[in-house]
Design a binder for these strands. Structure first.
Lengths: 127, 127
DNA sequence: CATGCAGTACGATTTGAGTCGTACTGATTG
DNA sequence: CAATCAGTACGACTCAAATCGTACTGCATG
C-alpha cells in the first residue's frame, strides 16, 4: 500500500486545523449517488488523473487551490476539469475567500469503490 | 472479494468445447502497454461495464461470443464496443469459426491494476 | 473605494465517441 | 456451390467533451 494514510485508526477529533466553521462545499453528489461509470469517466483523463494523484500524494491535510498544481493550462480549462471532478464526486471544493480549494473525498471513495484511489496513486503519466 | 474464482456450479454439458490449439488472439495491447486512463475510459460506459461484469460473473471458463450476452443492440454497435474493450486491453478475442469469442484478461488486469476488476464485478446498473 | 486577483460564465470551435443502417466478408453446412 | 450466419467495414449522424479566449464576478487588501 503506497497511499499515505491520513487518519489512522478512529479519529474522534477533527484533524484539519481549519476554522471551526468551514465554508459550505459546492454542490456535489452524495455518497449514495456516486456512480462507478461516472467516476471512471472522470478519471479517464490524464490531466484529471494528475490532479487527483497529486492531491493524494502531496496534499498535507490541507485543501489546495487551483494554482497550487502548477498546471500549464488556461484558467477556463482548469475550471472545467475541477468541476468535472467535483460533479463526479471525486473531489470536494470549498470557497476560501478568493480561492476555491479542493481535496479528494477519500473516505467516500474508499467506502464505495475500495482500491480505486490506490490505482490512481500508483498511476504514472506517459509510461 | 466477491468475484468468483472458477467454475462454481458445474455446467451440465460442455456446449462449446475448445480445440487444444487456440486460434491466435486478435491484436491487443501487451500487458506493459496497458494504460490506466485508457482502461478507465473503456469501463466508463454502462454497456461495456455490463459486458465485462457478465464475463466476470457468469462465464464458466469459456469464452463467449457476441450473441451470448443477449444485448439488444444492432450488430455494428456491438462490434464497436467489443473492439473498444479489446483495444483497451480489457478483453481478449479469438476467432472460432464463425464466432469471435471474448474473455476478460483477468491475470493481466489483476497484475497491473489490482482491485479494478472487483469494482466492476460489484457494479450494478442504474442504482 | 479602487485596484488586483482567483476563479467563473459564456460561447465558439474542434474532436472523438456512441449509434446504427447497409453492404460486405469469410467460415460452415446442407 | 449456394445459402446461411457471425461479425466487420464504412459512412452518416448526433452529441458530449475538451480547449480556450474574452468578459465578468466577487473577495481582499492597500
Amino acid at each position: 500500500m503506497t497511499r499515505p494514510v491520513t487518519t489512522a485508526g478512529a479519529p474522534a477529533v477533527k484533524v484539519l486545523p481549519e476554522p471551526a466553521d468551514l465554508p459550505a462545499p459546492l454542490p456535489e453528489p452524495g455518497i449514495d449517488e456516486l456512480r462507478l461509470e461516472t467516476v471512471l469517466g472522470a478519471l479517464s483523463d490524464p490531466l484529471r488523473l494528475t490532479i487527483v494523484r497529486k492531491l493524494l500524494l502531496e496534499s498535507e491535510d490541507f485543501d489546495h487551490s487551483c494554482g497550487w498544481f502548477g498546471l500549464d493550462r488556461p484558467k477556463s480549462s482548469l475550471t472545467h476539469h475541477f468541476r468535472a471532478l467535483r460533479e463526479a464526486g471525486i473531489t470536494r471544493q470549498r470557497q476560501y475567500g478568493l480561492e476555491r480549494r479542493s481535496h479528494v473525498r477519500v473516505e467516500d471513495l474508499d467506502a464505495r469503490f475500495p482500491g480505486l484511489l490506490d490505482l490512481v496513486a500508483a498511476w504514472t503519466p506517459q509510461g
